[in-house]
Design a protein around this nucleic acid. Structure first.
Length: 916
DNA sequence: GCAAGGTC
């Protein structure tokens, strides 16, 4: 009865824009919808109410979406340090009991949701029907809580996005499922805590010991590590493989002038004597031995058309048939989807839904020069849908949505489109039909060991094989068995009872050829071969293994493979095979020595099993997480306590830190030279104190002999750091870069209690203690205490009594420098360009600058540009000098030169700056 | 700089 007398407004939120569009069309009966300008596409329309809302005169629908998850989970600030990995310190162990914070993945989505939900009566959530989707439902509700009571929130369950299914789902709304959502929270927490604790520990531990690890981070994760494990296991299978000789009987049958190879039904024997004995039995037989045809079977066999393509199928086919890796393949498919050529590329389904319009989809391909005629012909005969495959209810299989003419797409995009289009056509084509012939021969003298077979096949009707160009069908043959292939093999005429006189090695020369009537004869010989080791895993095999063990999802499998490549754990070798590197081997072997379970796929399936229990409502989330955390936390302790076992492996594969570096710059404490380790990651090492000083990643570090850090009590010799293009150079103190991390006072809400601290007061005290040691504590001068300027690292500026700052990460492009007081402005990473304006701020009477952000990365809603000002012209001077070089100073109309040290316009009499 | 999972 709600809304009687006035239109009611229903807001629909989907998981992604494409679904929102489909929902709008479905609900509006195909009528046009108005797209409203918002950060994510929003469709609006008003139509008569559905039967379930009889008293409302009209219903206005507003359909929009998020783009995947709205929030990311992470540790709070005080748990972000990489500096303390000493197990005795317990810093990393505390991670397991740390609180987690959720922060928006993309800032604008939260506001978008609030905007769109404002003033509406009901909300309907249309996320994908899986656990992640259910979790996103609650993320959306978190954004708009306060606007709705729970009884006005509904969840649509749909298994296809065609209009009829959408109407059906809308007329049968349910409620969001809290348990499924909680199961995702649990997974997120476990993945994060386990991954981060292990990654930080092993990264720091081994980088503090070895100089040539060749990876900036030694990451660990419940998906990537088992993925590496598969590659390493195969390597071990290869290494431990002992080739063995084996023997088999080889029968070559000469019939009607053509030679047919018959395979020995017994396969092979590892006993040479036995096989030789068989041969001599035949050789010495009297009357002479023959091979006799005992049966001849000829029948038509179908080779089934391929199943519709899901993500995993696409990735495997791209790797095998096109030589395009999974990561790139998914990227290309994603782009083709966004430009409308392909349907949604992340799906598990291998069966077209019953509502799927095969004819229409085929129709759109009839004009194609390459396969148009075939498709027209197929339409006349009628398309075929298979009975196989599974409709997982997520998204339909991947199909071409829009025809791309030959030449319309280029490069790998064209090749991927071609593959998908042909595969789709093949999947609704007729099966291929072969006439297969099996001829059994027998050599009586050998009894049951005397059976041989000749196989032939001849194509009767090519069916789908006329349209697929690639040998992409049939799964991997893991034992290296020969592929049956798609080639024809036509046999001469045989009859049951045909006899072939046997000849043996040497017989031909001695004239003892035993030819039967019709010239029928056969040669019997022994073949010696060696067993061959398996090969490295191909991408395609690895994907199959991951899928089989539940490692990753359709959308993430490619990322995990990319991860282990990126970290230099494996390398891609010819044939798209993945070969473990020294680093990958040592890591995986090390896990095996300390705790097998860290590298086995079970680590993932255990987490998964726990989550399923939560999702089904059979287990309490908090209890499950608590228990799992205890398990992993103790595994972590065990790992850190036994790390020397792994270290033994590292020490035989990698060079000790002191052996790789070159003397570079002097330590302020010992006056000895620090060794420069090129890395990655680059760092300095003091052999005497065994201290590692990490350097910024990216850019270039140079010597700057003879200049010491002016910070009191530091005295480290400075280096020069160049970064960016065109390169800008900064002085860098290796010590200050790593030690002081000035902060803008205590950020509100940041007094989380660590393990072992009884109260918030204690936590606050710790915080203050920590801050007191830093050399630059002051409040952020901006009234909003802008959070973007919170984190930075300083280095003294040797040319003034001020400092300059350097981000410990790749670094923001732009940093401002104080000349006198420790006033620092740190611009966010997303800054693209800074322009000094000839305009003064009204309040602070200082120059303003325009800051432009990289597209979509502005922290200010909807803006790419905004201005900031300085209370002190000196700061501006320094900015110009550092970033543009001194020559630019002259062109700066408001420049006062280096000597100008007058106070700026601020009442407080200190340098400062603000955000506008 | 660290996980895995969504996705524009």
């Amino acid at each position: 009865n709600y809304g009687a007398g006035r239109p009611i407004v229903v807001v629909h939120i989907a998981e992604k824009p494409s679904i929102a569009q489909a929902i709008a069309q479905g609900l509006n009966g195909g009528g046009s919808t108005k797209s409203v300008g918002r950060s994510l596409p929003t469709h609006e329309f008003t139509n008569p109410p559905f039967p379930k809302a009889p008293k409302a005169s009209k219903v206005t629908h507003r359909v929009s979406s998020v783009a995947g998850h709205v929030f990311d989970v992470d540790f709070p600030k005080e748990y972000q340090s990489w500096d303390t990995i000493d197990p005795a310190d317990c810093y990393l162990r505390r991670l397991f009991n740390a609180p987690l914070v959720k922060k928006p993945c993309k800032g604008s989505v939260v506001k978008h949701l609030q905007d769109i939900a404002k003033g509406s009566d009901f909300i309907v959530l249309w996320m994908d029907c899986d656990r992640e989707g259910e979790n996103i439902n609650f993320e959306v509700l978190d954004c708009i809580s306060g606007l709705y009571s729970y009884d006005r929130v509904y969840r649509a369950h749909f298994s296809a996005i065609n209009p009829s299914d959408i109407i059906k789902a809308y007329n049968k709304l349910g409620k969001p499922d809290r348990n499924q959502s909680l199961s995702v929270d649990a997974r997120q927490e476990l993945d994060l805590k386990v991954g981060v604790a292990f990654s930080r520990f092993q990264t720091r531990y081994f980088q503090g010991r070895y100089g040539d690890l060749d990876s900036a981070v030694l990451s660990f994760g419940p998906c990537q590590t088992p993925t590496l494990g598969f590659c390493v296991q195969r390597h071990l299978d290869i290494e431990t493989f002992k080739p063995e000789p084996y023997w088999s009987l080889d029968l070559g049958v000469m019939n009607a002038g053509s030679m047919c190879r018959a395979t020995w039904d017994s396969g092979r024997s590892f006993n040479r004597n036995k096989v030789e004995e068989m041969l001599s039995v035949c050789r010495n037989a009297s009357p002479a031995a023959t091979a006799k045809v005992t049966s001849l079977v000829s029948k038509e066999k179908k080779q089934g058309r391929p199943l519709p393509l899901n993500t995993v199928g696409l990735l495997k086919a791209c790797s095998k048939a096109l030589g395009i890796g999974p990561h790139q393949a998914l990227n290309i498919a994603e782009r083709l989807y966004l430009s409308g050529y392909l349907s949604y590329p992340r799906t598990e389904s291998t069966r077209y839904p019953s509502s799927f319009d095969i004819k229409g989809t085929l129709q759109s391909q009839t004009s194609d020069l390459r396969w148009g005629p075939y498709v027209s012909d197929l339409l006349k005969k009628g398309a075929n849908v298979g009975n196989g495959g599974v409709d997982m209810g997520d998204h339909p299989p991947i199909i071409p949505c829009r025809h791309a003419r030959a030449g319309e797409l280029s490069g790998d995009s064209a090749r991927v489109y071609d593959l998908v289009a042909r595969h789709f056509i093949a999947s609704v084509s007729e099966d291929a039909v072969w006439k297969s012939t099996t001829i059994c021969l027998s050599i009586e003298e050998l009894g049951e060991k005397g059976q041989f077979t000749i196989r032939g096949k001849q194509m009767v009707s090519p069916g789908f094989l006329a349209i697929v160009m690639y040998k992409q069908y049939g799964d991997e043959q893991e034992d290296g068995a020969e592929d049956d292939g798609e080639e024809e093999k036509i046999l001469p005429e045989f009859q049951v009872g045909d006899q072939f006189g046997l000849t043996f090695p040497g017989h031909t020369k001695s004239g003892k050829v035993n030819v039967m009537p019709g010239g029928k004869h056969a040669s019997l010989d022994i073949k010696e071969r060696m067993t061959t080791p398996p090969t490295y895993l191909t991408e395609s095999e690895l994907i199959s293994k991951m899928e089989h063990h539940g490692i990753g999802t359709d959308a993430s499998i490619s990322t995990h493979i990319e991860n282990i490549l990126k970290r230099n754990y494996v390398e891609l070798v010819s044939g798209r095979k993945l070969k473990p590197s020294r680093l990958g081997l040592v890591l995986a072997q090390g896990y095996h020595l300390i705790d097998d379970s860290l590298v086995l796929p079970k680590i993932r399936s255990d987490i998964e099993d726990q989550c399923v229990q939560i999702a089904k409502g059979l287990a309490d989330k908090d209890a499950v997480v608590k228990r799992a955390i205890e398990v992993f936390s103790s595994k972590f302790s065990n790992f850190t306590e036994n790390i020397t076992k792994m270290d033994v492996l590292f020490s035989s594969s990698f060079a000790q830190l002191q052996d790789v570096g070159k003397p570079f710059t002097r330590c302020g404490l010992t006056r000895r030279y620090l060794q420069f380790i090129t890395g990655p990651p680059p760092r300095l090492y003091n052999k005497t104190t065994e201290t590692v000083y990490p350097l910024p990643i990216g850019g270039e570090i140079k010597q700057w002999t003879g200049r010491n850090c002016p910070v009191e009590g530091c005295n480290f010799e400075l280096c020069l750091y160049s970064v960016g293009a065109p390169a800008r150079t900064f002085p860098l103190c290796p010590n200050c870069f790593n030690n002081p991390k000035p902060e803008w006072g205590v950020v509100p809400g940041e007094s989380a209690v660590l393990e072992g601290e009884d109260s918030e007061d204690e936590a606050k005290e710790r915080k203050i203690r920590t801050l007191a040691g830093k050399n630059m504590i002051r409040e952020c001068p901006h009234p909003d205490n802008h959070p973007l300027i919170a984190e930075m690292t300083v280095s003294p500026d040797p040319e003034s009594d001020g400092v300059l700052i350097l981000d410990p990460h790749l670094g923001p492009k732009w940093r401002l420098v104080s000349t006198r007081e420790p006033t620092i402005v740190h611009l966010p990473k997303s800054v693209d360009k800074v322009t000094i304006l000839d305009k003064k701020d009204e309040v602070f009477k200082c120059h303003m600058m325009a800051i432009e952000f990289k597209s979509g990365e502005s922290p200010i809603e909807g803006k790419t540009k905004y201005t900031s000002c300085f209370a002190n012209d000196e700061i501006l001077q320094k900015l110009v000098r550092v970033h543009h070089g001194d020559d630019k100073l002259k062109s700066s109309s408001h420049g006062r030169g280096r000597g100008g040290r007058g106070r700026g316009g601020r009442g407080r009499g200190r340098g400062g700056r603000t955000w506008r």
